[in-house]
């Protein structure tokens, strides 16, 4: 049986695969991001399944209908579904009342530590700094108590 028995006979081949992509956001994503740039959050709605999608979809994942109805999601109606401290920041999955789905973002540290369920609002970047990307929401912060 052929096996390497001496350490200096072992070889490795080192190489890399440099890859670059340019992603479009899609029909629903394009519309969502253009609105986000204006400081608005919109979700798409499937009436027959009573589903509201955020980030929005052009299709209902349940009944597979094409969706064309949209609704505003107030940017101060969020709550923390879960959060984690990672790389010195707090990342939260923020959900909104009556919406399936939610948005991922950074949670600004307050005086008290975060908890599941606390109410939060989206804080947008200055208009001139927005790029039409999820990062146009600079962070979420706690509203009231």
């Amino acid at each position: 049986m052929e096996r390497i028995t001496e350490g200096d006979q072992i070889r490795r081949w080192n190489d890399h695969i440099p890859l670059q992509w340019k992603y479009t956001a899609g029909v629903a994503g394009e519309r969502f991001l253009q609105l986000l740039k204006q400081g608005k959050i919109q979700a798409s709605v499937c009436r027959s399944c009573n589903k509201t999608y955020l980030p929005p979809k052009i299709f209902c994942k349940e009944c597979f209908a094409q969706l064309s109805e949209w609704r505003d999601v107030p940017s101060d109606s969020g709550y923390v579904y879960s959060f984690t401290a990672v790389n010195g920041e707090i990342i939260a999955l923020v959900k909104f009342d009556g919406v399936d789905g939610g948005l991922l973002g950074r949670l600004r540290k307050g005086r008290e530590g975060p908890r599941i369920g606390i109410k939060v609002k989206a804080v947008f970047r200055r208009k001139e700094d927005r790029k039409g990307a999820l990062s146009d929401i600079e962070y979420f912060e706690r509203t009231g108590v």
Partner: peptide, 26 residues
């Protein structure tokens, strides 16, 4: 080059196939 994401392209094709068969996703 298309605006649609891969998810959206897949959806469009599936929806047409379901319509063509006359069935629902369920």
């Amino acid at each position: 080059r298309m605006l649609e994401t891969g998810k959206e392209l897949s959806f469009e094709a599936c929806r047409m196939a379901l319509d063509s068969a006359g069935i629902q996703r369920k």
